[in-house]
Amino acid sequence: MKARWFTPIVFTVTLLVVALALATVTNNYFYTAAYIVLQFIILATAWNILGGLTGYVNFGSAAFFSLGAYSSVVMFSLFKAPVPLAIPVSAAVAGLVGLGAGYLTLRLRGVFFAIATLAMSEVLYTFVVNWDYVGGARGAYIILQDDPPFGFSNHTQYLFTVMALMTAFAIAVARYVETSRLGRGLAAIRDDEVAAECSGVPTLRLKLISTTVSGALMGMSGSTFPYFMQYVEPTSSFSLSYSVNAIAMPLIGGMHSWAGPLIGAILLGTIQQIVQVTVSSAWNLLIVGVLLVVFVTLAPDGIMGWFDHWRARRRRS
């Protein structure tokens, strides 16, 4: 597939699927479940730009997600910001925080960056809990009084459509980063940072670009969350489950291309939606944790790894 065709195709497919869903499905539960799965696809895709393509582990996906969500809360409280405005601003805030965190720690060993992201998560959580303007530990309500724009029949369907478009955007960005000159530089960093620097790759700058883009996409995925739930509180928006899922999905799907996190997120996201309804939410978290550990020890290249193996074997025979 030619690179320049990829983005139009992704958006066309997304729009067709969304149109089909809107035309045939009326059950609101479907849109809620689909929204959550899409949100995971963005988180996993964004995580993979830094984790899979660059080799740096971010344990703080929940923090970037919450930065997006709470930026929206602030904007809504200030001037009732509409969704299309909240998205880019939230993404920018999360991207800037990613840039800052990267600037402080990316010169160190990757391990320290990973620990710093965990630490940052807890610091931001503490801030939000103590910040009354956004509701502190009690949380904040976003009451949408107007009808949804563009003729949508309700907010859930509207936000589902927005989320689907954001997902297409995230995948297009990830694929662009992966196949561009930038992606080659990131892959060099992942394989050997010193050799990359000595081959002309401006490693620090590329890592900063990577953390910024990754953080911004995560913030984007969180930006519509308060509108969708009409309520946010820090314990759930900073939930470790976002961070774990953002890591588990690319690892299970495969980290070396944009398709891995997509497959992992659809698979794990769907399983979780089913288990959450049929069993309980604690059990679905256990499943994610166990799958993460099992895959990382036994199938380090994930599902895409099996696929590559199978293709390589077929080519040989």
Binding site: A282, L286, V296
Partner: peptide, 23 residues
Amino acid sequence: QESLRSLAFFFGILFITEVVLIL
């Protein structure tokens, strides 16, 4: 050198322990 995956491994253990205790 596989620090990325071993980090994810320990993160998974952390998470599993927490969820089992919650359960």
